[in-house]
């Protein structure tokens, strides 16, 4: 469990890196937005990992009562909210991209900049 625990943190860090890199280094606007989603997904993973309790189960009381160990419900609640925020940002971003394509005829950042410079 200990190895897996450390592995989770590393995966979080690497995912964060991959997503963040795509946001900064990619010039295609859709690719940037996908990178942003990956970047946020990494943070979701961090929170959910934090909430895990070893040997616990999902925090839903089963009908057969009895003291069981439950994982922490709070990070799950926070991430539910964060996922929704993420999809909302994506939807709005895509709306902007569609309008950019209509106005400029391209969704590549450097081409947009060139058109604006003229």
């Amino acid at each position: 469990m200990n190895f897996l625990g450390i592995y989770y943190y590393w995966v979080f860090a690497i995912l964060l890196m991959v997503g963040f890199y795509a946001v900064i280094a990619k010039l295609n606007l859709i690719k940037k937005l996908i990178g942003l989603s990956l970047f946020q997904a990494a943070v979701f993973l961090l929170y959910i990992t934090v909430g895990k309790v070893e040997g616990g189960t999902a925090p839903i009381f089963a009908s057969a009562a009895g003291e069981r160990l439950f994982s922490n419900p709070l990070p799950q609640v926070l991430i539910l909210t964060a996922i929704v925020v993420g999809i909302s940002t994506t939807a709005l971003g895509l709306g902007i991209i569609v309008r950019i394509k209509e106005e400029y005829g391209t969704i590549e950042e450097q081409e947009i900049q060139e058109i604006d410079r003229q």
């Binding site: 963040f20 943070v43 934090v50 309008r99 947009i112």
Partner: peptide, 26 residues
């Protein structure tokens, strides 16, 4: 129309900022 690329940049940087904040709070 230049509002659109401007707002996209604003959106990307704003979301990075918010996500950084979220990591810190986490």
């Amino acid at each position: 129309r230049r509002a659109l690329p401007a707002v996209f940049k604003y959106l990307v940087m704003g979301t990075i900022g918010a996500t950084f904040y979220l990591i810190g709070v986490g």
